[in-house]
Every structure is written in structure tokens, then in C-alpha cells.
Amino acid sequence: MIRKIDSKTMGKSNLGWLNSTFHFSFAEYFNPTNINFGVLRVINDDLIIPHEGFDTHPHQDMEIVSYVIAGELTHADSMGNKRTLKRGQVQYMSAGTGVFHSEHNLSDETLRLLQIWIFPDKKGYQPNYGDYLFDWDLRKNNWLNIVSGKNGDAPIKINQDVNIYVLELEKDMEEKFEVEKGRQAYLVQIEGEANINEEHLNARDAMEIKEETISIKAIETSHYLVIEMRKDGI
């Protein structure tokens, strides 16, 4: 089963300094039929203007992954971590029993990132932070596994049975992604334009995939993120 989600139907917010597209209910956007997809609770596609950002605020019992698409993201938290990440780089924070953090764009260019929240497999973990500076070329015409569960092979491991993959597919190239029995996946067309199993996707569109193999053909050079998990995981 596949289901395309047009970005025009997603939640929207514009606070001036922050322009967001919400894949799931968040902040002022509430849709009781669109709270989560399995253990995936949040995907926010955020644009943050220069020298603005999220001031220090708390989180608890959530696995948070940030994927930088353009610009620079500067993170600071109550565990003493401070880091600036650029395009294609990833940070992870397990909020666990509680943590405070801030996320800012300290550069002179607009920052675009995907903010991803995933329910942990249990509550009460010790808070943790990590990041990874992936080489961009590793995702060119190749699925790069950037995040996995604790028993997986990705450099970043989270407290949930989830895999996150990214791909840059060159114009006219084709690539498949198999979602096995008992599994499901959520795909984000971050950039570009493509046909996926006879569905046409533009930038910021998405797709739910359950127990099915998809075939992607890039109409122009395109950029994808896929979150794969057990089917209907909560």
C-alpha cells in the first residue's frame, strides 16, 4: 500500500522568523486523523531566517533527529554540547528524563532543516546527544543509512526500531526501496521532482509505504529521506 501526501494539504505556520510545513499535527495545526505514523510523531520542514531560532526550551521522552538541508544549524543544550552543522549533516538528541536545548541559525543565510521526532521504545532513558558529519557523496545514487536502532549498523543509533535513509538521485536515474512484510516507511521528497510507482511527487511532498517496494525515477536531480519502522508500531 502506498499513499501520496501533497504538501499543499499539510499544516502551515509562518511566524516571520520561522516558516514551517507540518507533516503531522503540531503547534497550531491539529488534525485528529493525522497525529503520527507508527512511532513517527513529528516531521517539521522548517525555514529559519538569519540570526533567529528556537531559544532554550525543554523536551522529555522523545528521540529527536535534525537533518540539515541548507544553511547552518547551531545546537546548544543543558548537557554542555554545542555544535554547528551544515547541509547533509545530522544531529540526534534523546530527551529521555529531560533536557533543555536551543537551535539557532547564526549565519547570514536562511536555514532549512527537517525536525523529526520519534517515540522511544520506553520512557526514562538518560538524556544523550550525538551528531555525524556525513560526506555528501555517500548518498549520491545510493541509499545512505544515517540512523538505526541500537542493533542496527548506522553511525547514529536511537532508542527505537527505526532506520532513516537519505538519497540524492541524479536526473533520469532510477532507484528502488523495499519495505518488507511487517514494516512501513514514510518518504519525504525533500528537493526535486520524481515519479514513484506512477505517482508524481514535487518538492516537500511525502508518501506512506506499507509492505511494498517502490521504484523512484528522478525527473530532475532529487533528494529524499525515508524513515522505515515496524508496521503501525504503537
Rank of each mutant, 00 (worst) to 15 (best):
N81S: 13
M93K: 03
M93E: 02
H104W: 09
I118V: 15
N105C: 11
S107W: 10
L111Q: 02
M93G: 03
L85H: 01
R83Q: 13
G96H: 04
H101G: 06
L111F: 03
M93Q: 05
L106G: 05
G98R: 03
Q89K: 10
L113N: 05
T97A: 10
M93Y: 02
H101C: 08
L114F: 07
Y92N: 02
V90P: 01
S94N: 13
R83E: 15
A95Q: 00
L111H: 02
E103I: 08
H101E: 06
I118N: 06
K86D: 00
R87G: 01
S78D: 13
S102C: 05
W117E: 03
S107D: 13
F100I: 06
I116D: 01
W117S: 05
E109I: 10
L114Q: 02
W117V: 08
L111T: 03
L85R: 02
W117H: 09
E103A: 12
K86A: 04
G80S: 09
R87K: 15
S78G: 13
F119T: 10
L113R: 01
A95K: 02
G88K: 02
P120D: 13
K82C: 11
T110Y: 07
E109N: 14
S102Q: 12
T97K: 14
F100P: 05
L114E: 04
H104R: 15
G88M: 03
T97N: 10
L114T: 03
Q91S: 07
I116A: 03
R83V: 15
F100G: 11
H101W: 12
F100Q: 14
M93P: 03
L106I: 13
R83F: 00
S78W: 10
G96A: 06
E103R: 09
V99A: 08
G80A: 08
L113H: 06
V90L: 07
H104N: 14
E109L: 09
I118L: 13
R112D: 04
V99Q: 02
R87P: 00
S107G: 09
V90C: 00
K82M: 13
S107F: 08
E109F: 05
L114W: 01
R87V: 04
F100T: 14
L111V: 04
R83S: 11
L106E: 15
H104V: 15
S94E: 06
E109K: 14
S94G: 14
T110P: 00
H104L: 14
G96Q: 06
G98K: 04
S107Q: 11
S102R: 08
V99N: 02
E103K: 07
G80C: 10
I118M: 06
T97I: 09
N81C: 07
D121T: 14
Q115H: 11
F119Q: 04
S78A: 14
E109D: 15
